[in-house]
Structures are given as C-alpha cells and as structure tokens.
C-alpha cells in the first residue's frame, strides 16, 4: 500500500481523497553503532479525532518513534505529513508552527516538570511561545491566571495548585499538570509516551478516563504509546503492535481478541 501511495504523492504534499490528520511514511532511524534500526520503515495514518494505540515491549523503538515525530531527533529517511505538509523536512522557523499543533506527554511527570519552577511557570510556556495571541477555541486567555485556572480545571485539579512546586504534588497530580500543559494550546495531536507507566493502578484508570474525556471535548487526536496492552486497549480505537523497530500487526481495538492476530500480539495478550 505504501508503494502505491508513494507513487501517487512522491515529491509533494498528498492530494486527492480524504487525508488523515497525521500520515507517517516509511520512517526509519538507526543510531550510530546499532545493529538494527531503532525505527524500521514505519508507516501509519492517524485519523482526526481518533486515538491510535502503539504497543510494544521496552526497547522496541516506541520512544525513538515519538522523538522523531516531535522532531527532537531527525529521522534518517521517511516523511511525516501533518495536514499535507511534510514535517520531517521543515526548517527551524517553520517548525515552530508545527510545534503549535503537536504536543507530547512523557512517562515520568517528575522529570517533565522543572522542579525549581512553580506549576504556573511550567504551564504557561507553550502558550507564551507558540500561540502568539491567536484566539483559542475552548480556552480563553483574558489573564494569565484565568487561563491557567481553566487548564487546571480541565484536568480536574484545584486551581490553587498553580502556585505550588512539583514536589508538593502527588504523581497523579503531576501527570495531570503535564496533560494540562499539552492541551493548553489546543494542539491537533498529542503523543503520549507511556503516560501511565509511573502511576499507581487507581491513578492510571483516572488518568485514562480523563484523557478519553478530553479527546472528545477538545476534539484531539492521540498517538498513545505504551507497553501496557490493557491501557492501550482501553483508550484506543485502532492499535498497532511494534517489535524490533517494525510494526508487526495493526487492527481495530475491538478485534484485539480475534483469531487472526499476529503470533507476537497473541503472546502479548497471553502475558496480560
């Protein structure tokens, strides 16, 4: 299917029929000195408004994929189309417009928040740097405090937490703050890189429910990366299974238990 697609759209933005929001094509990344590519010729589409889950064990290349999508690292080859624009080749200035539309939430909320800054100072960064005064749809910026209050309310946290430091919050609260930071500029896509891995089971469930609510209420699309098959299945409409840098299986979440699953997927299911 990729060759077909590539033939139609080589060298320019994809045109024609209904486009997915995010289209990744034949993305590869090999670290110097590594035996095999960390990300090996990966292609997938993320439709507007859906949650696409990506499951894989540690070291399968999930995080490298998310870093390439965020342009924290550059892929060796392949393309990342967001609404018909190839992100993989954007220069620094145009990249800023892209960053406005895609946000990331990492696994460890303690490392994702600067311990020396108050919650408010960490939360305001994306808005100050990326929004440039264009009005938002769901949040309104009348004053810094009013805006931050809305963000914290959206993730079901008391507004007075904005004047606290990260170490004064629980792990679950901290992860909610990083989610608030990601949704605050109303991006199109949010990448979640193991967002529930460092939380206890109860917080995990609560955060997953919150993410599902936010996706529908704010019209977001998620790429949800995790090793936790149950969490991915709970939140996603479509799922992909990654192994040694390659996507070995993809299916609708409802078809997880189907007999036609890839043997590796079945192995993952049997572990859970």
């Amino acid at each position: 299917m990729n060759n077909d697609y590539q033939a139609k759209h080589s060298g320019g933005a994809p045109i024609g029929e209904e486009q997915p929001l995010l289209r990744v094509q034949q993305l590869s990344r090999t670290y110097t000195g590594a035996k095999r590519p960390a990300v090996d010729n990966i292609s997938f589409d993320l439709e507007r408004g859906e949650c696409l889950g990506l499951v894989g064990e540690s070291g399968c290349g999930k995080s490298t994929l998310s870093r390439c999508l965020m342009r924290i690292e550059d892929a060796d080859s392949g393309s990342i189309w967001l609404d018909g624009q190839d992100i993989a080749r954007l220069n620094a200035r145009k990249l800023k417009a892209y960053r406005r539309r895609i946000q990331i939430v990492f696994q460890n909320p303690s490392a994702s928040l600067n311990p020396k800054l108050k919650i408010a100072d960490s939360l305001i960064d994306p808005y100050e740097q990326l929004v440039n005064g264009t009005p938002l749809q769901h949040f309104t910026y009348t004053s810094r405090e009013a805006y931050l209050r809305q963000l914290l309310e959206a993730v079901e946290l008391p507004a007075e937490l904005m004047n606290r430091y990260p170490h004064e919050l629980s792990g679950g609260q901290r992860q909610r703050v990083t989610i608030a930071r990601a949704i605050g500029i109303e991006p199109d896509v949010i990448l979640f890189d193991e967002p529930t891995a460092s939380l206890d089971v109860i917080s995990q469930g609560a955060v997953l429910d919150l993410l599902a609510t936010l996706r529908t209420s704010l019209g977001l699309s998620y790429l949800f990366i995790s090793h936790d098959l149950a969490a991915v299945h709970r939140i996603s409409q479509h799922m992909m299974v990654m192994r040694e840098g390659k996507i070995v299986d993809r299916f609708a979440a409802s078809a997880l238990m189907s007999e036609t699953r890839h043997p590796y997927t079945k192995e993952l299911i049997s572990i859970f």
Partner: peptide, 12 residues
C-alpha cells in the same frame, strides 16, 4: 531531563 526537551519542543 525531559522538561528541557519539552521546553525545546515548546519553542523556547
């Protein structure tokens, strides 16, 4: 640490 990565992706 990741908060620096995030600051970079947020265009600081």
């Amino acid at each position: 640490k990741e908060y620096i990565l995030i600051a970079r992706t947020n265009g600081l």
